[in-house]
Amino acid sequence: MRRFALSGFTILVVLFTIAPLLVLVFSSFDDGKFFRFPPRELSLRWFRAAFASAEYRSSLFNSAVVGLLATIISVTLGTAAALGLQRGALKSRAALEMVLLAPLTLPLVIWAIALLQIYAWLGIGGTLPGLVLAHATFTLPFSVRVMLATLSAIDPGLELAARSLGARPWRAFARITLPLALPGLATSAALSFFISFNDVIVSTFIAGSSWMTFPVRLYSQLRGQGIDPTTLAIGTMVIASILIVVALSELFSRKALRT
């Protein structure tokens, strides 16, 4: 009975956590200009509008470019850092790890306010390099964390076995550790990309009119005019792509575990 109550409570809380996203998806299919519950008519009208709008297309493109570039930097540096933490000298490990994970604990808004002023002096405010640098920075700790967990789950004896069979250290790493770390690499890449893609907190300070990302556009629109149903359709597509990536990585990692 007690356990039943706990499960019921958990289900309710989990529902509460995803309810806003469910509502977002649900309401994007509502035909009306203003969402009302219960909905009157369902249609794909806002999805067509989303594809037709050049404005949204360009901001989505900007988000994707920033996300991709930031992800490449974040995963590369994150994997290297995780390797260094795992295999390097132990005495400095705690301090280095704390530095690498700092963006997870310190609030991004405060950082962004400082960054805004520094970018202005450096003249990279509102530019692509500025955005990519910032996004790579706050997604890096996620890559480090995922890769640390991935690498620590790999038996170090495997690489030693490869060396005893004649593989040079670099080859042993490339043939043994890297393939085994592939699911972790995919996870950290997906995590970095979507966190960057959806970021509004930092970008709203440093994105300019020439490199306006989608969340920044959406944020200013929400403050000004309220909800444009087209953005609901775009949000639905973003959530759908997140779910697809999660499902794929689940499939992928299960297959990797089996072989």
Partner: peptide
């Protein structure tokens, strides 16, 4: 992963 905006939009 979804950032601050998408859930707010639903809310």
């Amino acid at each position: 992963v979804c950032g601050a905006l998408l859930p707010t939009l639903g809310l």
